[in-house]
């Protein structure tokens, strides 16, 4: 039971993080390797705003998410727009920016156990004999709200539909008057917002550590590759696979193997089914 409940919670928080990465990739075809960095940065921003500027929690939470969106948009507007289309350069540039942010934070003093964000809803509850703290349930709740929000946003708004168009066929969307660069910026803003929000929810469960940036990045990549790069449904399903795998390794092996399992999963997927579980359906592509 414990495995089931904690696996579920873990999977949903994982899919929350991975959704941002997948979203950016599916729309702009740019793998945003700075995703993990934005995640850590948002947590750190919130801490700074609360402890050095003495804002209250909600204001600093909102401000830090905005800041993360702004950085995401700037990464695209200043750097990626010039190198878009050169795949290796995209990876190197985003990875370099991510490294710069993470190591910059480490250099700036983000070390040790002093940096914690407050828990939004304290206390815990017993579900089927398993003790779960409210913060974890809150993470599940926020995850579901974000999924719902995205479903509505993509399905019913003008920008959402345009994003969907760009994700499927960029050039056909351009012919209909959709600006590809603008939509890529929107995707970076949304991706960074998701990274930021998940940071604010997940960090209170422990300390803000820079290493989380790398973990988040690796797990996001693992989830996106297993689910099929750019597939939103695939990402959610793959995060359940990885999420439960994480909990199982924690219970039966040891926490240290979590990363190994994720990386192994990437390799196995690439060997057996390179397009992932829900990779682009090839049979649909040409029908003349």
């Amino acid at each position: 039971m414990q495995i089931f409940i904690y696996g579920l919670i873990n999977s949903i928080s994982l899919s929350l993080v991975a959704l941002g990465f997948t979203l950016v990739y599916s729309i702009s075809r740019i793998p945003n390797f700075a995703h993990g960095a934005l995640y850590v940065a948002t947590g750190y921003f919130a801490w700074i705003l609360m402890n050095l500027f003495h804002f209250n929690y909600f204001i600093s939470a909102i401000l830090s998410v905005f800041l993360s969106c702004f950085i995401g948009a700037m990464i695209y507007r200043l750097v990626l727009i010039k190198i878009r289309g050169m795949e290796i350069s995209e990876v190197i540039a985003t990875y370099a920016i991510g490294l710069a942010i993470i190591e910059g934070l480490r250099w700036g003093g983000l070390r040790g156990a002093t940096y914690t964000l407050p828990v939004i809803v304290p206390g815990s509850i017993e579900i089927f004999g398993v003790i779960v703290d409210y913060q974890r349930l809150f993470a599940v709740f926020v995850g579901l709200v974000i999924f719902l929000f995205f479903y509505i946003f993509i399905k019913f708004t003008k920008t959402g539909l345009a994003l969907k168009g760009i994700a499927q066929d960029e050039r056909a969307a351009m012919m209909l008057g959709i600006d590809s660069d603008k939509m890529a910026i929107v995707s970076f803003i949304l991706g960074s917002a998701i990274a930021g929000i998940s940071a604010l929810i997940i960090f209170p469960l422990g300390n803000i550590v820079v290493e989380a940036g790398y973990n988040v990045l690796v797990f996001s990549i693992a989830v996106s590759i297993i689910g099929g790069l750019g597939s939103w449904l695939g990402a959610v399903i793959a995060s359940f696979i990885i999420g439960y795998a994480q909990i199982l390794t924690e219970v039966f092996l040891s926490t240290h193997y979590q990363m190994v399992i994720a990386l192994l999963a990437i390799i196995i997927t690439l060997l057996i089914r390179p397009s992932g579980l829900f990779g682009k359906q090839k049979e649909l592509e040409e029908r003349v």
Partner: peptide
């Protein structure tokens, strides 16, 4: 466009 380029998943 040529070959229609429908959005296949929509």
């Amino acid at each position: 466009p040529e070959r229609r380029r429908i959005f296949p998943e929509s």
